[in-house]
């Protein structure tokens, strides 16, 4: 190690950092893990929501317990737990998969509430109208409730993805090199001047949520044009 500390990154250094392959690949990890976790969570949320809405007491109880457990304890703890028990269970999963599963299972609890609210949000008269047309329960669910509930779910689910971009930062704890871990690695290597690294990370997190915000706006506008105003 040289005796004198390295000089701080100047403006050019910071700009170079902004497009350096290390940073860009970390940003990419953040983006795809967030999307993967959110997608899995949305899928897992469906059976949970249906269980909550079902009239079967044991099903209801299981869903309640799941939500209580996953929302009553920290996400970071769940993440580290999965990471810690995988070897004991003999599962040889890559770290990042364990991380995504933990993020998704935690988020599933949240998604189940969003899905449940969307299903309840569909006007009950729609249900009655479909009944008088002679549709079966399954048909009503598939043809009437699901399409309308999907529209109601769109805005809150979009916000969840935005949250997920930030939640992936916790993957740093199990040394997945996403944006926050990468920032920490930089800061460890250049402990005298950590600020530019944090600024670059903040920039990309902003960019992600802003870009997604714009996409979300367009999606919602399109849903609205088709006659589904968010009430």
């Amino acid at each position: 190690m040289p005796g004198a500390p390295a000089p701080a990154l100047g403006l050019t250094g910071t700009l170079a950092l902004l497009v350096s392959p290390l940073v860009l690949s970390a940003v990419w990890v953040t983006i795809w893990t967030a999307i993967a976790a959110q997608a899995i969570a949305a899928l897992c949320g469906v059976p949970l929501a249906l269980a909550e809405l079902s009239s079967l007491k044991p099903l209801k109880a299981v869903a309640w317990f799941y939500n209580w457990l996953f929302q009553g304890t920290p996400l970071l703890m769940q993440l580290i737990f999965f990471w810690a028990v995988l070897p004991i269970l003999g599962l040889r999963l890559p770290l990042i998969v364990a991380g995504i599963v933990a993020l998704a299972l935690n988020e599933a609890a949240r998604m189940s509430q969003i899905i449940r609210a969307a299903i309840i949000g569909v006007d009950a008269r729609q249900f009655e109208a479909a009944r008088t047309l002679g549709m079966s329960s399954w048909q009503i669910f598939r043809l009437i409730i699901v399409p309308q509930a999907l529209r109601l779910m769109l805005p809150p689910t979009g916000n969840e993805l935005n949250y997920q971009f930030k939640a992936t930062s916790l993957l740093a704890a199990i040394s997945v090199v996403e944006l926050t871990r990468q920032t920490l690695n930089f800061a460890d290597r250049d402990p005298a001047h950590p600020l530019p690294y944090f600024a670059v990370a903040a920039f990309y997190y902003f960019a992600m949520s802003t870009a997604w915000g714009l996409v979300q706006q367009r999606l919602e506008n399109r849903a609205e044009r088709r006659g589904f105003a968010e009430s």
Binding site: K166, S169, A187, F198, Y205
Partner: peptide
């Protein structure tokens, strides 16, 4: 717009 973890680390570092 930024993760809480990043903020905590920034406040400390």
């Amino acid at each position: 717009g930024t993760p809480l973890l990043l903020q905590i680390l920034a406040f400390y570092i």
